[in-house]
Design a binder for these strands. Structure first.
Lengths: 204, 204
DNA sequence: CCTTGTGAAAAACTTCACAGCC
DNA sequence: GGCTGTGAAGTTTTTCACAAGG
């Protein structure tokens, strides 16, 4: 077999596992048990065992999972084992924060292009990358850039997203508070910080 | 009955409904159908009808849901009908972006306090609010501040979060790439942007 | 026609419990 | 003793199908 079909919910948790296992790895541990991970992630251990079982039995009974193998497998499934180039659209306050965010490295992401609309910003540098005119995206796909971080105002998001798709982008992390209507083959993940905050009062 | 028990997944979708219905409201529509919302949100219409049915039958058959009533009900369930005060911890690049983010208003959130550790920042203003020393949180709970946005480095997040809980905060939106170990009564929502990006290559 | 509201069916996911192995 | 891996059981969530109403 290649791998069994991996449930959506499991895929959604893999990046969390990656982060937690990386942490354990940095501490120098060779093995990690499902209990340990469960505690760290506020989950139950059978859940983790089941998730990991979807991509092959490589845990060692009585000991746990070999940390390096585990990292490799998760990266392999998520296709993070080769560095992923990404473009950032929007060099406003949020764009600046993203451009200098160190956390992307853990997942092998590299922001290699930054675009903005404002002539005042074009030509300047953020995060070591020169800001270019968003009117000239060029063929991002051909340059190996299939991911984009969209940090533009909600009013411009749909239009820019369509142009990104034309430019060969296949996946978009949308930080504007709106939905994007794009062809089904394009994967969109939207993060609306205010919306996430919106559920807190219910539980408080 | 008060309301039937609302499933977790439904609660999670309410902020999305709120955003979408607000949009329709701004366009001046009096009614919106489950189909319309479904299209806008990339969902199926029975899902939306079921979700809305959990808090009372107020849709008009043949027409749809009255937009204003719908907004009111969702706000009521989410406890967003009264303005919610929030504190922002961390005035770095991300903190600055959050302080000036206009999207919070839709949900009735108001950032009334900003804290940071750096003496260089303390005393300055962002988003119209003076930055105070994080060492002196005071009793946030007594001042009606039960929510906090945590935008500090991962290394400091756990410690600051514990102090927030002592200060009377009940819900935390954690933007640091780490898990927080806090009493169960505290609701934590973590957003790790890099992690969300992490699932894109799998689908691309 | 058009819609909502909902029980029932189906699907998806989580948890349990324990065999098997170190 | 410890831990993994997994079928089966249990739970939650989604989808369907259609009665009932405008």
């Amino acid at each position: 077999m290649r791998y069994r079909k991996i449930p959506d919910e499991t895929v959604r948790r893999l990046p969390q596992y990656l982060r937690a296992v990386s942490f354990v790895h940095k501490q120098g541990c060779k093995y990690v048990s499902s209990q340990e991970l469960a505690e760290r992630l506020h989950m139950k251990s059978p859940q983790i065992r089941k998730d990991l079982s979807y991509f092959g039995a490589f845990g060692v009974k009585g000991t746990g999972y070999p940390v390096e193998t585990l990292l490799g497998r998760i990266r392999e499934i998520l296709k993070l084992n080769t560095p992923q180039k990404a473009a950032l659209i929007g060099a406003g306050r949020l764009g600046k924060a993203l451009a200098s965010y160190p956390g992307f490295r853990l997942y092998g992401f590299d922001i290699v292009e930054v675009f903005d609309r404002s002539p005042r910003k074009i030509g300047r540098k953020i995060g070591g990358v020169e800001i270019k005119d968003v009117a000239h995206l060029g063929d991002l796909g051909k340059r190996g850039i299939r991911l984009a971080l969209l940090a533009v105002p909600a009013g411009a998001a749909q239009e820019v997203a369509e142009r990104l798709v034309e430019a060969g982008v296949r996946g978009i992390l949308n930080l504007a508070p709106c939905y994007l209507k794009l062809p089904k083959r394009i994967k969109v993940v939207t993060i609306d910080i205010a919306m996430e905050l919106g559920i807190l009062p219910y539980y408080v």
